[in-house]
Design a protein around this nucleic acid. Structure first.
Lengths: 333, 333
DNA sequence: TTGTAGGCGTTATCAT
DNA sequence: ATGATAACGCCTACAA
């Protein structure tokens, strides 16, 4: 590995001049050429570690997500990559495994590794450790979930209206007994999604039967159990809304196993597009979030913060969702 | 941000002693306590950038994959994380977007960022740029795909036998006209999977009709087109093997759209487990690769190489697959 | 516009 | 076992 000293020697200039060349300061053309030759000749490239020691910049951003292995995470990351990559930022990816402890630990790691910025999908509503990051002067952008009592930039999808539209579509097809498989109310999108449901029911003057609100973890198992719970009722719902991809899959599984026909015996509407929802017949109706855009927007905000531009803080970007309505929702007369 | 100088001052020792404490060398107990107090008091933590400048270690590994946004990639990465995380390594994740140019560029980035090691799923069979990495002394482990003419550690699944068993199972259910949707033969697993097919056919004395070998990109579109091609034949196959997750999905879609019943009108056997294959009725028969294990093993090998242990180089780990046979394959009498 | 030198926070080599 | 000090490779006053 050659250093700027070597380059200086070979080009018969000084380290100062080489460094200035490297950083785009004006130098004499003759020297410029000599230096460029030397760099090529030595296959020199700048050592970012040494540079970082001086500049306190690493051109690395940390991304922390509760679960890496799903389409949501990777799509979002892909969106971020589209922004960061051309600007020369690398991404350090970590998985908090849905554990607050892990989240704290990883955030500490980011701080130690001196990332220039952080994108975080927080595990829950706890804010103290995040605030500490901010106080350390490291910009941080939240995705998917905002945190109460914390002033922080964030990019989320418009959960309330997404679900509202879904429930509205269900109602418009004649349903009245509409159930929801909801998630823990201390998780931001879970809370919002339930709110969307409640608001739609209210606006259409349908009294909410609290037995039709099933609450559990937003996992496959949660979705599976939700269906079991509804099917055990004397008067089961005619349509069910599931609050995320995992619960949709679990619900689907349970419905199939019971030999029920979706769109016939029971109507189903999910949140998040998945392979399964698209390929199965009938296709499952879903609310679609703009995943890549979430990634892109969060990256863009982070970039401007890293440049020191804090206009409009805190920016909360609430991205619109789309709905795909299929005949997984029966039309009742 | 406090430094070891501050710690030394506060604890009334010297930077040397503090550094030695930090690196686990023996020091007097009194000093040890004083230093620990000072560290706590100052909330000191070591600056890995500065350390890296001296040690040429960053405790970061680079992971480069052709496409991040799918279950294969994330599962493998999750496996790696299980190994790296407890050892204090962070992972720099990059997407080569199936482009050799991007792969070269990212590999250069890794070199510049001074990662301690690299895990690479190569885009194709090109080896020169990988060899350069090796010559630079940076350990590298390949996953999923080996590269011809390159001595390099690698972890792959036993594609040949995986497909062999699948085709064997199809044959044992009475099929003779068995087709395969194969991939580009300059991609390692695609080549091996076709070989598994050919070998099984040969071993069971079934003459290969070359019209039943459809070759295309291993994409959804490829799978979709494959079915179209087979269905246009005078004497279509009774069973179809698809070479990866994407082609399976594409094939499934095409079959459904044609109104054909899987396991009845046509039999289907895929490679790689997906949501879809599990949830659909009938479930799709598949060859399952041990994804997390691929991640874990590759990480373990890389760790030992980074420690300087080069025993057995090059290690090629060929992991066994499993097959799940369902009635997506009809039994013919 | 240039070269020299000091410093970023560590580690490692000296004597002691 | 310890303290002082010279690196590591780069950036940036400073003086010229």
């Amino acid at each position: 590995m050659s250093t700027i000293k070597d380059v200086a020697k070979l080009s018969q200039t000084s380290v100062g001049t080489v460094s200035r060349y490297l950083n785009g300061y004006p130098i004499k053309t003759v020297n410029k050429e000599k230096i460029e030759d030397a760099i090529k000749c030595l296959d020199f490239s700048i050592n970012p570690i040494a540079r970082g020691l001086k500049t306190n910049k690493t051109y690395t951003v940390g991304i922390l997500i509760p679960k890496l292995a799903n389409l949501f995470s990777t799509s979002v990351i892909e969106g971020m990559d589209q922004v960061f990559d051309p600007l020369g930022y690398s991404i350090l990816v970590c998985d908090s495994k849905n554990s607050l402890e892990k989240e704290k630990e990883k955030l500490r790691l980011f701080k130690d590794k001196l990332v220039d910025g952080i994108i975080l999908m927080p595990v829950n509503n706890t804010e103290q450790h995040i605030r500490e990051i901010q106080e350390n002067g490291v910009p941080i952008v939240l995705i998917d979930r905002l945190v109460n009592n914390l002033q922080c930039d964030g990019v989320v999808s418009d959960n309330v209206n997404g679900v509202y539209q879904a429930v509205e579509a269900i109602i418009n097809r004649g349903h009245r007994r509409i159930a929801i498989i909801a998630g823990p109310q201390n998780i931001y999108p879970a809370k919002e999604r339930l709110e969307g449901y409640l608001r739609a029911m209210k606006d259409y003057n349908i009294e909410v039967d609290h037995n039709l609100i099933y609450q559990n973890e937003l996992t496959r198992e949660g979705g599976y159990q939700g269906i079991a719970s509804f099917c055990a009722m004397d008067e089961p719902p005619t349509a069910i809304f599931t609050s995320n991809d995992e619960t949709t899959i679990g619900a689907y599984k349970s419905i199939i196993e019971r030999g029920l026909l979706i769109g016939e015996d029971i109507s189903l509407f999910g949140y998040d597009q998945t392979e399964l929802c698209q390929m199965v017949r009938p296709q499952i109706s879903v609310v679609i979030q703009p995943l890549e855009t979430i990634g892109k927007r969060s990256a863009e905000i982070l970039i401007s913060r890293m440049k020191g531009d804090y206009t409009g803080f805190p920016i909360i970007n609430r991205l619109k969702t789309e709905i795909v309505v299929t005949n997984s929702v029966k039309t009742i007369y």
